[in-house]
Design a protein around this nucleic acid. Sequence first.
DNA 1: TATGAATGAGAGTTCATTCAT
DNA 2: AATGAATGAACTCTCATTCAT
Lengths: 200, 200, 200, 200
Amino acid sequence: MEGESRTQKALVKAAIDMFQQKGYQMTRVSDIVAAAGVAQGTFYNYFRSKEMIFREICNDFMEQVRARFVLRTQHMFDGETSDEVRENLHAVIRDVFTIYQENLAVAELLFREGIGNGGLFKEIYEDILNLFLDLIREQVEKGIAKGFLHIDDPEVAAVFLFGMFERTLFYFLLVRKNRDMEKLEDKLADFILKGLSFEG
Amino acid sequence: MEGESRTQKALVKAAIDMFQQKGYQMTRVSDIVAAAGVAQGTFYNYFRSKEMIFREICNDFMEQVRARFVLRTQHMFDGETSDEVRENLHAVIRDVFTIYQENLAVAELLFREGIGNGGLFKEIYEDILNLFLDLIREQVEKGIAKGFLHIDDPEVAAVFLFGMFERTLFYFLLVRKNRDMEKLEDKLADFILKGLSFEG
Amino acid sequence: MEGESRTQKALVKAAIDMFQQKGYQMTRVSDIVAAAGVAQGTFYNYFRSKEMIFREICNDFMEQVRARFVLRTQHMFDGETSDEVRENLHAVIRDVFTIYQENLAVAELLFREGIGNGGLFKEIYEDILNLFLDLIREQVEKGIAKGFLHIDDPEVAAVFLFGMFERTLFYFLLVRKNRDMEKLEDKLADFILKGLSFEG
Amino acid sequence: MEGESRTQKALVKAAIDMFQQKGYQMTRVSDIVAAAGVAQGTFYNYFRSKEMIFREICNDFMEQVRARFVLRTQHMFDGETSDEVRENLHAVIRDVFTIYQENLAVAELLFREGIGNGGLFKEIYEDILNLFLDLIREQVEKGIAKGFLHIDDPEVAAVFLFGMFERTLFYFLLVRKNRDMEKLEDKLADFILKGLSFEG
DNA sequence: TATGAATGAGAGTTCATTCAT
DNA sequence: AATGAATGAACTCTCATTCAT
């Protein structure tokens, strides 16, 4: 990572841009090298194939994000009072949103391609999916143990939470483009804690 | 739609199978005709291109599903008492799950390809996404108006609900291949109404 | 073999020509299709790769030649009298020369490429080499058994004979081009039977 | 030749190894420099191209071998008595085998590539072929003049002898990898002098 | 309507060679 | 003399599409 040459960095950046713009399959190696401003053959001095640069990008992203998510989700449902819990959840959501936004291009890329392409990157997608689900489930279990949360299946709840996070970020950041994330954080925290706040 | 010949139907079925198995880009027209048991050229008697058969499949699916969803979601948060509301929500969820399962191949196809492929089918995906979001938002608004639901942004809530539905179905049906949907319906209804049931 | 289309035949002919002219490695698929008068892609409707057309050509040649050689070499050292033996050997040599000349292009191709190219076609070459050596050795053994030939190692003798045949044909047909083969047949028969006719 | 640097020698040695292992076309310059332990660009400080290093190797070999063969073959059919002639022929064969074995890698290389590659090194191969044929023919002529050999076409006989030598060495050293050359020398001497020792 | 051989643009990849350091 | 990153022409192979039968 640290020993990457200027050219290699340019290729990675160009590849992320092009993959995001055109998708993995539609991106030509010639698009990448053109965007990086190098010759066609130069690509193969750094990456064995188009598939390999994609995998490298995904793996780098996963390593980076894994560490940060582990730290952040630690305190998802921490706190002694109602307000403290709410505040902590809010902080976690803010962090997650931030991490996602910082890595927006790769994150989108991975979620896009992970489930498309006839399974070419299925295992990468499922790896990261399971990583997230595990992290969330652990925190929900802690919340239940502490007596804050009253729900009987933390695994399923983790899927619900992940779906909300992922699609919400996808929709507002990528489909709608411009959105005030702060308000969204509030609403997401509320929904997680109370759902639609049904009172019969 | 009505006047489809045996050959055309075979091609559509084969195309759905192959697109689902291998993804849009990885599916060759030769795969489709082989699966349909017709000659290469026959494909082009019925469809102008590989892209067009995909669009036709998606549009057919959307037309079919649109009508059913409109009907089903009508009564999402109907009911006078707490139990009636819960029961209605549950019924809607069950219906949605059923519709999804009945059209599993195309549904998966559309969600997969809609966000992949560099936007080739972006507009199809966004059409159906907006259709669902609108339907859900309307029902949430009705629930708020009736005083059952206490939430201030029905649009955002619709995104949350859609994300949960979509990723939950994706995860359990396609990643986990676990088809015990009934328990899932319960948990989803509970989560929608109460979130993680936080009590501070 | 019989069901080959006009195009396939044209490709095979063109491939033999080009391989012979330029060698396997230097021959481009584009050379072959140009010589055959078809489009680039047409090649791959008939052959999976450049390597496969080469193997097919070699295998066809081997099958064809195997049958004829088995028949011809049958009577290599047959005969009751000195003159009959000499005449039979002569006839066999003539047949072998004829078969070789009829398949000159492929024969040259196979002997050329079989020992070059870093072993890509090593096994093909060794197959045909062993086929020939076995056939010759058997006949030499028969000649020894009949008391005509006085030599103690028929296997090594087979290598000598093969070397003479192969290099002689190679040299006179391909290096020298124009050569009266009939006289050569005489001389080869003599040499085989008497060597340099040393009398000390 | 005399002023070769350590680097140049390493490149030549590496090139011979790689050409022998993989063939001329399949050997990449990067294989050679890797085997020589120098950088890619260093190659071009010593050789103008891949083709030139091959030619240099062949020419060096030819110069070296030419001198030795001229000396050795001098006495091929020398001698006054039958036994002396046989002994001299035997000695020559032994020398030739020895020279061949000492230069096995390059010799194999030259014979392999000389007739492959669509004539790229055709002239080199024909040069050395003609060198050998001339040397052998001269000796056969001497043998005839002395009254030892009874054969009417020394040129053709030279081709026969060369074919036997070349293919025999090729077959036993390179295909069979059997290095018991002594017995082979005996048998070759016998065959040259008497052929299959036919007695009708 | 059905066929399937033919097409050819365009993809990913290789590698001999160059040249600034 | 040595380096090795950069080059780009040239290669093999793919596959959506056409069209004569």
